[in-house]
């Protein structure tokens, strides 16, 4: 290994690859999920996978700051954000909302193409990486792309935001798999931004509903140039 770290390679690497595969699977599951409540649970599951993979990488490489990022992930993405989201949909009374207007098979096909694209894009970079997690960089990029696709295809506000948060998950996974995570101060800043953003959006949801009587953003297509 070019980083010169002592690594217990095969077993750890296998666990990490398994977790990465689960992350990708969860991304696809989110893409295909119409119910808001299940979407939040899937997001939470993604948080658990992220936490586990970060902790495993930390144990495998003895990078102490990664334990801290794993802890932040656990608190923020497994407990805090899903809790806020659950509270929000309960108070907004959209708990049983179902997104009807998406064509799941087509979206899945586009998703597959995106995965292939990301793997190709990641290939030259992972060839340069010296981390034990380098093979998962493509998966991280695919997760980002799939979350992006989810944001585009959804027409309701809450799923769009979950897509946004899932994209951040993918980016976080990319950071761990390419470089063993960013410096601590940056990671804390990102976590703070995500949290503040979530709170602001929560306030925002209520304003939108008050104004439009629904959280469907197809109502918000008035501003155009003509």
């Amino acid at each position: 290994m070019s980083t010169g770290l002592h690594l217990d390679l095969p077993f750890y690497a296998q666990v990490i690859n398994l977790l990465a595969a689960m992350l990708l699977l969860l991304s696809f599951a989110m893409l295909a999920q119409r119910r808001i409540l299940s979407l939040i649970n899937l997001f939470m599951a993604q948080g658990v996978v992220l936490f586990a993979s970060t902790a495993v990488v930390a144990a495998a490489t003895n990078q102490h700051h990664l334990y801290w990022s794993a802890l932040i992930t656990l608190v923020l993405k497994v407990f805090l954000l899903p809790w806020i989201l659950h509270r929000l949909i309960r108070r907004l009374n959209v708990k049983w909302d179902i997104e009807t207007l998406i064509n799941i098979p087509t979206t899945m096909m586009i998703g597959l193409v995106l995965v292939i694209f990301s793997f190709n894009l990641a290939l030259p970079i992972s060839a340069l990486a010296g981390t034990i997690t380098r093979s998962t960089l493509g998966i991280a990029m695919a997760a980002v792309m799939l979350a992006f696709l989810m944001m585009i295809t959804r027409s309701k506000a809450v799923p769009q935001v979950i897509g946004f948060l899932a994209m951040e998950n993918g980016l976080f996974f990319a950071a761990t798999s390419a470089t063993y995570g960013m410096p601590m101060v940056v990671e804390l800043g990102i976590a703070l931004d995500v949290l503040v953003g979530m709170v602001i959006l929560g306030v925002f949801f209520f304003q939108i509903r008050e104004q439009f009587d629904s959280l469907d953003i197809r109502h918000m297509e008035k501003l155009k140039d003509d």
Binding site: I125, M151, A157, M167, M182, L201, F204, I217, M220, L223
Partner: peptide
């Protein structure tokens, strides 16, 4: 509200690309 939502989503997605760029730079 529409303008602010658009602003948040578009700039949020945009800035996520910048985060990926920063990760690559760090790498």
């Amino acid at each position: 509200l529409e303008a602010a939502w658009k602003y948040f989503i578009l700039c949020g997605v945009g800035i996520a690309q910048a985060l990926f760029g920063t990760i690559l730079l760090y790498f």
